[in-house]
């Protein structure tokens, strides 16, 4: 499956905007990415292993946080996983 990498995180994927991984679940896809690019891990997860609060993982059009099986959700070759930092602010 394809993982889309946003610009701020591309220095950690050799400047690739998308990375293809073999995976059966969302978790396997992410670990496939972080095993290939170890520096990626700390940008996605806190030291105690939680997805950083401002990082959103979208499986196609669905927020992985709200899928019944979350990171355990099955994926196939046609799926796209998007990593999207949040956009917010104030005055």
């Amino acid at each position: 499956m394809k993982i889309e990498i946003p610009y701020p995180l591309r220095p950690y994927t050799g400047n690739q905007s998308a990375v293809n991984v073999e995976a059966g679940t969302v978790a396997e896809a992410v670990s496939g990415l972080t095993s290939r690019y170890p520096d990626f891990q700390k940008h996605l997860y806190t030291p105690d292993g939680k997805l950083r609060s401002f990082v959103n993982l979208y499986l196609n059009d669905e927020d992985v946080r709200y899928l019944p099986e979350r990171e355990g959700t099955a994926v196939n070759e046609q799926d796209t996983l998007s990593i999207i930092p949040s956009i917010a602010g104030g005055d």
Binding site: N56, Y58, D61, D63, S82, I84, S86, I87, A88, G89, G90
Partner: peptide, 9 residues
């Protein structure tokens, strides 16, 4: 302000 991540995707 906040842009929904779904919209951003």
């Amino acid at each position: 302000y906040n842009i929904a991540p779904q919209e951003l995707v």
